[in-house]
Design a protein around this nucleic acid. Structure first.
Lengths: 337, 337
DNA sequence: CTTAGCACTCTCTCTACCCAAGTGCTAGAT
DNA sequence: ATCTAGCACTTGGGTAGAGAGAGTGCTAAG
């Protein structure tokens, strides 16, 4: 048995199946690829590939279709990430440069990635777990209303208005603000609650009740800001590509809305040497995504994830290239601002 | 011709079609409803209804299906908004009470409405067009970095960090902040740009360049905050209900993502005497929503919209009841905070 | 190890056919 | 004037069978 050719056959099957969207047989294979051998030989190779669990035949007299495992081998051993065209690079650059806000940047990015791949794109907000507090602000709006603002060095800003049980004048608020700021600035967002609570003892006794209210608000803010979020774009592509078996799109839409499953999955994905992570079909370990593959990578300083979701039968090289390129531009933009 | 009975037949057709999801014939009609006449009579009525364009037959030997116009007559003349069960009311109340943030309230609300109706729910952020400025804040983060915050009386908060071309110490910033606040507080968000620009003359000449930078940031903030947004939930229901003809779900998903079409539509919908607005099929005046109906109503002080999207073949009475009830609870919650 | 040939197995498509559901119309009953 | 009963007619959907096409596995020879 000719091992290199066998892999070549696998590659050809994957590429043809992605392209034509139907099971591919031995005859079609020799016609479309210069394999240099006859269809009978290919049949032997295919039988071997099937024994190894890399391809399956939907029924006796149909061609073969790659299994999740087959795609895995293809991605790991056979796929070269193909670089983007310069037109695409140009589009990325010009689209991302017009953005200002973090929200705006992520929104544009995810739309861009979706259009580039014709698939569903997702981007995770920079995780505040590792982020540090850049600034804490408390602004009196009314005698009993204070706006709390928490700014992290990842660029995210969280704010909330809290209503107090007693009046608080400007000077007292200034003292508390200063104390909170000193206790948290430069320290991890995840420790805001503890750090703020620790300042209580140093305050005037009469300030403590109101300070506790503010501290609680600030802690809630830190907790809320650590809550992970995902922004999505291109869900309409789901309905188009999977036009045949649309049963599977409902669970995917659910997963996108629930976010929890997806966040766990993204956080578990580790990029390989090429800088991209791929989870294929059942590898996602989520029933709702059993027929879906996820191609993702990290971006920015805290390695938040960006990626796309699509059918297992997707163009992995192109998708991987797009994800990697967009992630790089995104990192650059975020570092620059 | 018996006019009241004819309308009764229309009601029966709509109800049966919504229930059984297939064209309804004269015989089935007399079996399922106590109309007191024979199927032949019903056939005459149906022929009349078809002449009026209220129902159509997909083909010669099938039953009849309501047209958009038929649904319109049903909704206007025949549908009584049926009140929610006390269990549903209870669910609404308890779910909404746990929320704090405006974001959180809207998020919970839209999910709730989606679950209640098994359809896609949308809620528009309170429109800042009519909102007034409650507070403006400018916080120095670094010598050349200032956090601008704009708070509207609708509860929305917008913020952004701007980087300046020159250093700005705390005292000068305080002066500028005070001046901006005085110029905008209590006035419409839509006029922030103009009001801020008008303060320039009263400032010290050396402050003007940096003040202009801040003013531009503030104006941008006001503009951004006036940008309308929609939050969505329950897109997975789309794939389930329309399981037959899923061609139509892709454009709907697009409309949900684009938002522009939907925002225009929502703003044009005016609630009727029952407090709910309904746009049926082509009435939405959007190709992508030609097979979709929208049931919406206003909430809160500035009449932002909340509603659901679903197939024209939907249970209008139940949906209208759910939308109205949820909108009322939402208004109550927002007024209370 | 590869190739050619061949028998075999399925799926898919097409046709023919019938059945059930539904309609419109006419003539009679109320 | 309406309603009803009956009936002929239309049509989509379902079933059964034939055939084509595609693809496979196996065997025997190069």
């Amino acid at each position: 048995m000719n091992e290199p050719r066998k892999l070549e056959v696998l590659r050809a099957i994957v590429e043809d199946y992605v392209h034509y969207r139907e099971p591919v047989g031995s005859k079609a294979l020799v016609e479309r690829h210069r394999l240099g051998v006859s269809s009978a030989t290919i049949r032997n190779d295919m039988a071997a590939l099937e024994d190894e669990g890399l391809i399956v035949a939907p029924h006796t007299s149909a061609g073969r279709v790659p299994t999740d495992k087959g795609y895995r081998v293809f991605v790991d051993q056979l796929a070269a990430v193909r670089p983007l065209s310069s037109a695409e690079k140009h589009a990325i650059q010009s689209l991302l440069e017009g953005a200002d806000d973090l929200d705006d940047v992520l929104e544009r990015t995810v739309r861009l990635l979706s259009h580039l791949t014709n698939q569903v794109a997702v981007v995770q907000y920079p995780q505040l777990g590792r982020a540090r507090v850049r600034h804490v602000e408390a602004v009196g709006l009314a005698p009993r209303q204070v706006l709390l603002v928490l700014i992290a060095d990842s660029g995210t800003v969280e704010q909330r208005v809290v209503t107090l049980g007693e009046d608080l004048d400007h000077d007292r608020l200034a003292v508390l603000r200063q104390s909170f700021l000193a206790a948290t600035a430069g320290k991890p967002v995840s420790q805001v609650g503890a750090n703020v609570a620790a300042t209580m003892d140093s305050l005037l006794p009469e300030d403590r009740p109101v300070a506790a209210e503010l501290a609680a608000g600030l802690a809630a803010l830190a907790a809320a800001s650590r809550e992970e979020r995902i922004v999505t774009a291109g869900t309409a592509y789901l309905a188009r590509s999977n036009s045949d078996f649309l049963l599977s799109i409902s669970p995917v839409l659910e997963a996108l809305e629930e976010q929890v499953v997806l966040l766990r999955l993204l956080s578990e994905m580790a990029s390989d040497a090429r800088g991209v992570a791929v989870a294929i079909g059942h590898e996602t370990a989520a029933d709702s995504l059993a027929e879906t593959s996820v191609v993702a990578t990290g971006y920015g300083r805290d390695d938040a994830k960006i990626g796309i979701l699509g059918p297992t039968r997707m163009d992995y090289p192109a998708t991987m290239a797009a994800v990697r390129a967009v992630a790089r531009y995104l990192s650059k933009i975020l570092a620059g601002s």
